[in-house]
Design a protein around this nucleic acid. Structure first.
Lengths: 407, 407
DNA sequence: TAAATAAGTTCTTAGTAAAAACATATTGGA
DNA sequence: TCCAATATGTTTTTACTAAGAACTTATTTA
């Protein structure tokens, strides 16, 4: 109501320092290693200011300064700053048949991944117990060699942004579970939870195919359908209530079948992983083999089976129809395709690209690039860890210097 | 989630002051009048800081402090700050049959609008001459009573953001015209040019239906088709090369006809103003009467003509099909409909709203609102003026205190 | 070996917002 | 009518910021 537009908050000196520290730490985090000279150039800050910022981050125990790289030009070589490799987050991903727990360091390196299979769909309490047990097992090592910033959880469901309550996770059958609070109480560590797709997109946009493009569109195809996300200025665009990015439910076929969403001819129903699996006689459980089977068929001298070829062409046609609208609307620099959509693209890249380019408007079609997602198995671990790192990355000075690891 | 991306610039103290001045002036500009206490609350800045900021803006001659409103609660009444009414911009909108020139004050008040009809499509030189002549006629008044910040031009064509070169304006038959430079040379005033649709959307989002919603989607229907814009965080989202917002070229009918864009079944071809005009036997030149004719038909006791009703239902159906996809993708708070799309909505609001709500996903559909654009005739004048005001609003201290008006 | 170049370091400075203390203007109750 | 409570404006002081100048250090190049 009094929320009229310039609801911008004012800036003060603390904001300046916080923001500048965050930029320097963020550069080290995203790039892995960066010279002070590069920081000076990118930020436009004075050498002496950068010196002070780096010194503070070193003092906070967040980065280390290393020997300069072999010099390639005249002038004093610039020291390299890198995130301290002992700063870690614990990543958690509960699924219907397993709980995966990872140890991830700054700059997105997955140091450890433990998959704990469950006999049945785990309850929230069971997940808390499993995570607690696994973390207890690592505790000695954690305290000896690492500083643990917190825990990030990628949940296959709807999670509130403020307090990490799982409103609903359909496949897990969780409803209104204050999961962040439960896990935090059990572990004595800060916990941040979010939707798994959102976490994955954030990871992909920070460390995967999207790392060079500030703005991009992400479309992911999984067993349960097609989801996606809009990344603007490096951040996932949430929409007014956190649902933005449902690219699966736009029209691609007026004569199409009824979608579970209630409409007809959605991308989500016309382009399905299950149809592809059936066409190559694979079981739903063997979805990981889909790509290798398809690639093998397309590599044969006689080409793929006629039915497979027709289905792939048909699905790519619908995907292209959807993407041409998306390209016209967003004029994106980059479209990233994950899951079986990435497989479709890998099998016939020209078909998809020309399908979009032939139908999109002249302006937008000239600047768009396509890419597959890159992060694979690590995607959700990195995404979940990023959730835990985010508060520290936004305000490096807030970290507790006494955190973990004796002095 | 919003952590630093590689290319972020650092902050310094000048940025802080500039930003805080911009926020205060922006509040006065957008709201027309605002109390110092409100500024303190909205910005979170200290009373003394706000006092200093306002004093500087007063000193710069950009705002005035007025008597407080009648107090409604205990405590010292808070002074009202308002933009100085003598700060103006000149708005220019060249069209195929006329050049419209306006005088617009801060907070978007159109003080004067002059439409200069042309016998034929004007050349850039002719537009420069017309504007120069009109401004010369006003010069006495301008110098006596106003401080003219600059000139904004809303061009029906593609304009580069950096130097205001008109790459192409199809209806005017302009190609690669450095229009900003030409007009600036002739007037001796700074000139900013931009696409007319973009300028209109910015105006509508700042002063029209979008003023309460930071993020929204705008769809406009005109004689030449359907265009639109994506407003995120109060700013028009440009896309990688400035073409974002083409909502007219997404699929709404797989069995549809070939669109001029080369694809089939686009919203732009299935929902056209010309079809509506033909249905009610109006000439293309009488498009302004479309709404009153349609409203009259729908208000009749026997209802509209069967053919008209069927056409309206059909067009609203396609519009709803397009909007359900858009609502799913953006999860917007507000969708603003302008031009004949606003007319369609006005004639049958429930039909459109239910058409979208019945087909959109549960999450996004619950939070979306629809509105017509509000600004009407003033739209492009305000939008063009906003172009001219923008540099000053972004950096109030940069204004030349000696500007105009012997002080 | 010296010059050119580029970056790190130290110290000083201008400028910022906040905070504290005080002044002012209103409402509401006794 | 007066006084307390409240909210805001004003003045002065303070802590802290980044920039800049001057200097030092480490490399390439001629």
């Amino acid at each position: 109501m009094d929320q009229a537009r310039p609801a911008q908050r004012g800036n003060n000196l603390d904001d300046v320092r916080r923001n500048n520290l965050a930029i320097v730490l963020g550069l080290a985090h995203v790039r892995g290693r960066v010279s002070r000279a590069e920081v000076t150039k990118v930020t436009g800050l004075n050498r002496s200011t950068v010196g002070g910022l780096v010194a503070e981050l070193v003092d906070l125990g967040l980065v280390v300064e290393q020997e300069p790289d072999a010099a390639s030009h005249a002038g004093r070589p610039s020291a390299i700053i890198a995130p301290r490799p002992d700063i870690v987050a614990i990543a958690v991903n509960p699924e219907v048949d397993a709980v995966t727990i990872g140890l991830v360091s700054l700059s997105g390196k997955v140091l450890k991944r433990i998959r704990y299979d469950t006999a049945r769909v785990p309850t929230p309490e069971e997940v808390v117990n499993i995570v607690t047990a696994v973390v207890a097992g690592m505790r000695g090592e954690l305290e000896r060699s690492f500083r643990t910033v917190g825990v990030g959880v990628a949940v296959p469901g709807l999670v509130t942004a403020e307090d990490g309550e799982v409103v609903v996770a359909p496949h897990l059958d969780w409803h209104n579970v204050p999961f962040s609070a439960m896990l935090s109480d059990a572990l004595g560590l800060p916990v941040v939870s979010a939707n798994d797709a959102s976490a994955g997109i954030t990871a992909e946009s920070t460390f995967g195919s999207g790392r060079e493009a500030n703005d991009h569109i992400y479309l992911n195809g999984g067993a349960s359908g097609i989801g996606g996300g809009i990344v603007i200025n490096g951040a996932l665009y949430p929409g007014v209530s956190g649902f933005a990015g449902e690219f699966g439910h736009s029209l691609v076929n007026s004569g199409g079948v009824l979608c579970h969403c209630g409409a007809y001819g959605c991308l989500d129903t016309e382009v399905r992983q299950s149809a592809l699996l059936a066409a190559v006689s694979l079981d739903a459980a063997d979805s990981e083999q889909l790509e290798s089977v398809l690639v093998a068929q397309f590599a044969r001298s006689e080409g793929p089976d006629a039915a497979v070829l027709e289905l792939v062409n048909r699905q790519i046609g619908f995907l292209a129809e959807s993407l041409r609208g998306t390209v016209n609307i967003f004029n994106p620099e980059l479209v990233i395709l994950g899951g079986f959509l990435g497989t479709l693209y890998a099998v016939a890249p020209e078909l998809l690209e020309s399908g979009v380019r032939d139908r999109a408007l002249k302006g937008p079609r000239e600047d768009v690039r396509f890419a597959r997602s890159e992060l694979g198995l690590d995607l959700l671990m990195i995404g979940a860890a990023q959730l835990a790192f985010a508060p520290m990355l936004a305000n490096p000075a807030s970290i507790d210097k006494a955190l973990g690891k004796a002095s």
